[in-house]
Amino acid sequence: MQKNKFSFQNIFEKYGIVFVLILMIVLMSIAKPSFRTMNNFLNILTQSSIYGILALGMTLVIISKGIDLSVGSILGLSAVIAASLGQSMTASNKYFPDMGELPIIIPVIAALLVGSLCGAINGGLIAFTGIPAFIATLGMTTIARGFAYIYTDGKPISTLTPAFKFIGQGKILGIPMPAVIYLIMIIITWVLLNNTRFGKRVYAVGGNINAAEVSGVNVKKMLFLIYTYMGLLAGISAVVSTGRMVSAQPGLAAGYELTAIASTTIGGTSHSGGIGTVWGAVVGALVLAVMRNGMTILGIHSYWQQIVEGLVIIIAVILDMRKNARKK
């Protein structure tokens, strides 16, 4: 029986991005003492949680050789609907003036439902009409955003219940709630992808859709479910995001889809399908968060930060492609 070869090159190829993350943290800690405080680390975790959750779903989507451009808009729409159902009695501009305070579960469920529904529409379009994921989700991007503006008439919805605020700003055992939720979703997605038939088939669909089909995998159903799960995660992100700001406005999270795609890509998920991991998406999200946080502490202007981010994404993919090419 062949043994798995154990060499530094293999380890570096597989976990290279982790070394990059560690290196970044070490260098920053040396350069700026203010970076290496517990508070700042929790801050980084919280900052990465919203697009980090999106990146989890995006990992499934991209492994299946798809793309979802609409998650930012879906997040925005879910957020304003959740916020409208989660206002406190003291709010001056109540969306539903005659409604009392609802238990927190109602806006949360509403956000998850709206997110899942939008995702299901994406998945349905892709699976049953055969249009490319890029097009289907591009359409959904503007549709969901449009509904968010119509729903709110373009105005923010603020003054939410304390329970809502707790989801965004509270702590459990000293860990911020967004990070707790992120952690839970990491575990759920990890199990989903690695320990269920569903997960195995996500890889199969992206790795070789024809082989999946002739092996009896219901490819259409798979696509439908993958995008629905992506939508569900957008709904969860919406709740976290709304809680953090204790308000929601219809333009929320524009461009987050790109950050999610970037996290996933930096984490080694291949856009040619069939390759990708949950931990990769997590590390990718952390790399972006550490980079943003670090550059801000170093006083690098946010315009320059954008340029660095773009370069990092491109370099990450070039390295990744070299790695896969060498295997052939």
């Binding site: 038939r197 195995k200 088939r201 890889y203 199969a204 790795g207 070789n208 024809n210 082989a211 999946a212 002739v214 092996s215 009896g216 995998v217 069939g274 390759i275």
Partner: peptide
């Protein structure tokens, strides 16, 4: 051939009827 290249042999063998 129609393998799922970047998955293990065993997942290729049992694709579509994975033991649970």
């Amino acid at each position: 051939l129609s393998p799922i290249l970047y998955r293990p042999i065993m997942e290729n063998l049992w694709l579509g009827r994975e033991p649970i």
